[in-house]
Design a binder for these strands. Structure first.
Lengths: 295, 295
DNA sequence: AGAATAAGGTCCATATCATGGACTACCTGG
DNA sequence: CCAGGTAGTCCATGATATGGACCTTATTCT
C-alpha cells in the first residue's frame, strides 16, 4: 500500500441527509478504515489521508476509539490497529450473526473430503472478506488467502462467486466503484475481464480463479443466499493448479454445491426460528454508500 | 433482567479530562451496553435508562451506529442488537487478538481427553465473558455457560480463576464495583463468599465452582497471563457434579494446568515475534472507568 | 555532528454541530 | 374509546467538535 491512495468510499451521495452525529460517523468510518489493514495497522498520516479528515480531528477520534478499546496504538511503531474490544464485540455479535459458526461444519467436511483448503467469505460493501480458512490435509497448500484478507468483489474464487450472484445493476455499481483500485492494484482483474468471469461463473454454476492472484493457486467458489435472496457469503476451495484440472473442478463442485445449499437451509431455519416468517433481520437499507461525511 | 437497573459504569471519576469527543464516547458506550445482551437485544427505553442519556440523543447515536452496521434494529420487536459489521470487525481484529485461535487447540485437547466441555473466558472490566465453549463427548452435558455469556468476575469457574489471579487491590476494586449486582442477582456469590473462594482458589491452584450458579453444574478453572503478568484469560472445564468428585478434580487439574501453561508460552511467543522485547501492546491504561460522560 | 525533513502530536478561538425539552404517533390492555 | 407506555421526531440554543497554526520527536542527508 502506498502511492495512489484509495480513500474511504468517497460517498457519491452528495451530502445526503445531515446525520446529526457527524463525529460519530467519522469515528466509525475510521474504525472501518483501520479494519482494512488488520495485520499491520495504519500510521496516523495514512489514516488522515485515507479518511479525508484533518490531523487533529482524526487524532481526537482515534483517542475516543482507543478509550473504548476498539483501537489500539502500537507504542513502538505508533500505528493504529483494531483493539481487543473489537475482537470481543465480534464474539458477542457472533451469537446473532454466526455465519462462521454455521459454516464451520461444512468447511470441515469440505476440507476433509477434498484434502484441500476451504474458505468462508462474506461481502462487505464492494469488498469480499475472508472470514475463515479451514486447512486441508494435502501437503502442498496455497496460502494466498488468510482469514481477514480483503479484496475487491470479483477478485478470488469466493469473491467472484458473490459478485456473479448479484443482480446486474449491483454488479455494475460494484465494478464502477472498484475500477480505480482494480486497475491500479489488481492486474489481470480489469473491469472487462471481470465481466467475462461473471458470465462464465453464471454459466458454469461455480466460479473459477485460475491462479490469477497468485500463480499456481487456483480456486473454485459458490455463493449462498439468505432466505430473502440477498447474497450471504460464499464457500470456496483452493489448491495448487495441478489439483484443479477441469475434471477435478467438476468433481469438487459437487460437495461445494451441497454445502452451499446446506448453508442456505441453515440460514432459512435460523430466520424462521427467530422471527415468525418475517422477511429479514437486516432488511433495512445498509446501502452501498456508508453515509460517510466525505467532504 | 428487569427492575434494579445496573447502569453503565457510572464513572466514579468526576469528569476526568474533557475528552473532546463526548458524542463518540457516548456512542461507543451504547455499543458496549448493547453488547451485554447479545442474544435478545435491548429496547430503546432500556438503553436510555441504562446509559443515562436522554431519548433523542440515544436514538441519534443509535442511528449512527446502525449506519455503520455495528448495531441493527429488529424491525419486529424494535430492539437494538449488535450488527453484522461488529461480527466482521471481530474477525478482522482476531488477527491480532487471536486468543481464541490460540486457545482452540488446547480446548479441543482438553475436551477430547476429559470428555467434558471446556471453555475460554476473558476479562472485560469487572466482568468475565465466555468466548468459546468446546463440547465434550460425554452424553450428559451442562449448558450453564454459552459463548458470549457474561457474569461478574468471580461468578463461575473461569471467572473466579481470573479474579483470584488479580492483585489484591484489583480484587477489591472489582468486588466493590460489582457488589450491587452480586447481591441483587447472584445469590450465593455475596462479596464475602467470593473472598473465601479466592483464598481457596489461590491455595488449591485452580478454581472450583461447586454448582453454585446452576445446581449440579460444577466446574474448575485456571487463569493464564500475558508475558507482562497481566491476566489474559482463563480455561475451564465443566461437568455434572457426579463427574467432579475431589479425586477427579485433581485429575482434571493436571491437563488444565498444562494447557494454561501452554497458552502462556504461546502468548509469549506471539509478543516477541511481533515486537522486539517491548513490554506490551495494550499497556496503555484502558482504565476501569470507561470514560463515560455520566454527568 | 548538526541541519533538514517528515511524521506524530497538541492548543485554543470559533462557529458548527450535538443537545434535550417538548411534542406526536403508535400500540396494548381495560 | 381512553389511559398508560413506548418509539420516534423537531428545532432553538449553546455547549462541543473543528482545524489552522504550532510544537516535538524520530530519521535522513551532508
Amino acid at each position: 500500500m502506498d502511492y495512489l491512495e484509495e480513500r474511504l468510499p468517497q460517498n457519491s451521495a452528495p451530502e445526503a441527509g445531515l446525520s446529526g452525529s457527524q463525529s460519530v460517523d467519522r469515528a466509525l468510518g475510521l474504525l472501518s478504515l483501520i479494519g482494512r489493514e488488520p495485520a499491520e495497522g495504519l500510521p496516523l498520516g495514512e489514516i488522515v489521508s485515507g479518511s479525508g479528515l484533518n490531523k487533529p480531528t482524526t487524532r481526537r477520534l482515534l483517542l475516543a476509539l482507543m478509550r473504548a478499546g476498539l483501537v489500539e496504538q502500537e507504542p513502538q511503531t505508533r500505528r493504529y490497529c483494531l483493539g481487543e474490544e473489537a475482537f470481543v464485540l465480534g464474539v458477542l455479535a457472533a451469537r446473532r450473526h454466526g455465519l462462521l459458526e454455521i459454516a464451520m461444519d461444512g468447511l470441515r467436511r469440505l476440507s476433509a473430503e477434498t484434502q484441500d483448503t476451504s474458505f468462508l467469505t462474506v461481502r462487505r460493501e464492494n469488498y469480499a472478506i475472508c472470514l475463515h480458512r479451514e486447512e486441508g490435509t494435502y501437503p502442498v497448500r496455497t496460502h494466498a488467502l488468510q482469514a481477514g484478507d480483503q479484496h475487491p468483489l470479483g477478485v478470488g474464487a469466493g469473491s467472484l462467486a458473490m459478485l456473479a450472484a448479484l443482480p446486474d445493476d449491483d454488479v455494475d455499481r460494484v465494478i464502477v466503484a472498484n475500477e480505480a483500485v482494480l486497475l491500479a492494484r489488481y492486474p489481470g482483474f480489469a473491469p472487462d475481464a471481470l465481466r467475462v468471469d461473471i458470465a462464465e461463473t453464471r454459466a458454469r454454476g461455480f466460479s473459477l480463479n485460475p491462479g490469477r492472484l497468485v500463480a499456481s493457486s487456483w480456486g473454485i467458489g459458490r455463493a449462498f443466499r439468505y432466505p430473502d435472496g440477498r447474497v450471504a457469503g460464499a464457500l470456496s476451495i483452493a489448491a495448487i493448479d495441478s489439483r484443479m484440472a477441469p475434471g477435478r473442478q467438476a468433481e469438487l463442485a459437487v460437495p461445494l454445491a451441497r454445502e452451499a445449499e446446506r448453508m442456505e437451509a441453515l440460514l432459512a431455519e435460523m430466520f424462521v426460528s427467530k422471527r415468525a416468517g418475517r422477511p429479514m433481520a437486516a432488511a433495512m437499507p445498509r446501502s452501498i454508500e456508508t453515509g460517510r461525511a466525505a467532504r
